[in-house]
């Protein structure tokens, strides 16, 4: 996979779409609540940055490719559903066990994919959909933070241990996945 190509590849229409969707969702939501001011302001600041990047990118790269956004959307939806499905199967309301499993597995797979795809002949969009889409949507940082904050008062040691397992385990698995991915590439080249 040519990383440069992906980096510079069509950045545009989907950025505007996602920014609008996000801003619209936040605005509608904020109108219905007393916390309106905070939400609206956050959405405003957020969309300002998105718009800024959008305009900049539009000027710099006119050959926008809508397909990338579609691929990321579908991948993200699949990843999110898989995450919800796993939590549902595990039946753990606190979110500790499911989140940990998802984050550890996802870290390993994304590291492997990142390393493997650099030299492989996998299509760029497939790698984008699987990596940024599916694996990015499958793992979650917000639930991890939320679970940690909401349980810190009740069981501080266990909660910190959980956080540490996520952090250290994720890092170790990412390093392992990276090494495995590169070994895969070397083997492929050897076979050629």
């Amino acid at each position: 996979m040519n990383l440069q190509k992906v980096t510079d590849a069509g950045k545009l229409f989907f950025i505007s779409e996602s920014a609008m969707t996000f801003a619209a969702t936040m605005t509608i939501v904020s109108l219905m609540t007393p916390a309106a001011r905070v939400m609206t302001r956050a959405a405003g600041v957020f969309s300002f940055f998105i718009m800024k990047g959008m305009v900049k990118n539009m000027i710099m790269d006119k050959t926008a490719r809508r397909g990338n956004g579609v691929v990321v959307f579908i991948g993200g939806a699949a990843g999110g559903l898989a995450r919800y499905g796993l939590n549902w199967v595990i039946g753990d309301t606190s979110g500790f066990l499911g989140t940990m499993a998802e984050n550890l597995v996802g870290s390993f797979l994304l590291a492997w994919l990142t390393a493997y795809a650099v030299d492989s002949d996998w299509p760029d969009r497939l790698v984008l959909g699987l990596g940024t889409g599916v694996l990015g949507g499958f793992t979650t940082f917000s639930t991890l933070m939320l679970a940690t904050v909401s349980h810190l008062g009740r069981a501080p040691l266990q909660t910190l241990g959980f956080l540490l397992v996520n952090l250290v385990g994720g890092l170790v698995l990412a390093v392992t996945g990276y090494a495995w991915g590169f070994r895969g590439t070397t083997r492929r080249e050897g076979a050629r």
Binding site: T7, K11, F14, I15, E17, S18, A19, T21, F22, T25, F49, I50, K52, G53, M54, K56, N57, M60, N68, G69, V72, F73, I74, G75, G76, A77, A78, G79, G80, L81, R83, Y84, T132, G133, G136, G137
Partner: peptide
């Protein structure tokens, strides 16, 4: 609920991709 989560996660991933792209430039 599955539809909601699918659409939400897709939108979230799209936003993340957009911000990551902008971040690579900045």
């Amino acid at each position: 609920i599955w539809l909601m989560i699918g659409v939400g996660a897709g939108t979230g991933a799209l936003c993340r991709y957009a911000v990551t792209m902008a971040g690579k430039r900045w």
